[in-house]
């Protein structure tokens, strides 16, 4: 099938990368697991009669049963329903924060690299400053602002502390791209610098940015979990992996189901994202060789 397509016309880069991605076991497993998790997070709640706000006053802290698949919490809430709700929130927060931070890294890095001099110095200095500020402290201090319903602000703040290292890599690559003939040609034809950055430089760094965005998803989910664990992230009545793990760890000793289902799902989610990121990096890298 692939040979046929290749024979007809030159394979597009997208197709080559996708083919190489799905050739690797890691990529296949990661992708399948992540699709399953998304299905579970968005379609899963429909399977259970309990919603995440329901409280079963006949079953407090009861073990998994036919009635409650993952058991219940101390409040009588159904663990299956709240876990999926929390997973949905964590996935959305992770994806959005990763997208925002990678976009920020691309734009800041490309501008700093393309315009040397003062622009470069200012932007690099700003990135250094954010690297020096302890992210956890700033986010935690700002947590009163992330009250109910304000999670979008939380996502933006989370993204603000994830982009610096990538932007430094982007800056370095932009400096070398700037010397290439096609950029020079565009410049001499009078294309505006902003247009060159968005039309020529950033697309040429797409492979790095895609891999970075994927790995940022897991970084964002992990940070969100840690912050929410201490009550500095997603605020009640919203739930996320972090708040659920915090609640579960208190009762885990005598009610293991309140902790292990959430913790397990979190680990599987991050693992799947990391596997995809790793497989993507190999797929984009023409020099990489995998066994078999």
């Amino acid at each position: 099938m692939t040979a046929l397509l290749v024979g007809r016309r030159a394979p597009s880069r997208l197709r080559v990368v996708a083919w190489r991605f799905f050739q690797s076991t890691q990529g296949r497993i990661g992708f399948a697991v992540l699709v399953l998790l998304f299905l579970l997070a968005f379609a899963g709640p429909a399977l259970s009669p309990w919603s995440y706000t329901d409280k079963d006053f006949t079953a407090f802290l009861s073990p998994p049963s036919a009635e409650h698949w993952f058991g219940t919490l101390q409040t009588g809430a159904d663990v299956y329903a709240v876990t999926l709700r929390g997973m949905r929130k964590s996935l959305i927060v992770g994806l959005l924060a990763a997208l925002v931070s990678t976009a920020l890294a691309a734009v800041v890095g490309a501008f700093a690299g393309y315009f040397s001099g003062w622009t470069d110095r200012t932007l690099t200095w700003g990135a250094d400053l954010l690297l020096v500020l302890p992210a956890f402290l700033i986010l935690a201090v700002m947590s009163p602002l992330f009250g109910a319903g304000q999670w979008v602000l939380f996502v933006i703040m989370l993204a603000l502390f994830l982009w610096m290292v990538t932007s430094k890599i982007v800056r370095g690559m932009t400096i070398s791209l700037k010397q290439r003939e096609f950029i020079q040609a565009a410049r001499f034809m009078g294309v505006s610098p902003v247009r060159i950055i968005f039309r020529h430089i950033i697309p040429n760094l797409s492979s790095l940015l895609i891999v970075d965005a994927t790995l940022n998803v897991s970084a964002a989910i992990l940070t969100e979990t840690s912050l929410s664990y201490f009550g500095f992230g997603i605020q009640p009545p919203d739930v996320s992996f972090g708040t659920l793990i915090a609640d579960g760890s208190r009762t885990a000793l005598y009610a293991p189901w309140t902790f292990w289902f959430v913790a397990g799902l979190l680990v599987v989610t991050v693992l799947a994202v990391n596997l995809i990121g790793d497989a993507l990096r190999d797929a984009f890298d023409p020099a990489s060789r995998r066994p078999r």
Partner: peptide, 8 residues
């Protein structure tokens, strides 16, 4: 291990 946050 890398998929496990310290809190977990």
């Amino acid at each position: 291990v890398l998929a496990m946050p310290v809190v977990v």
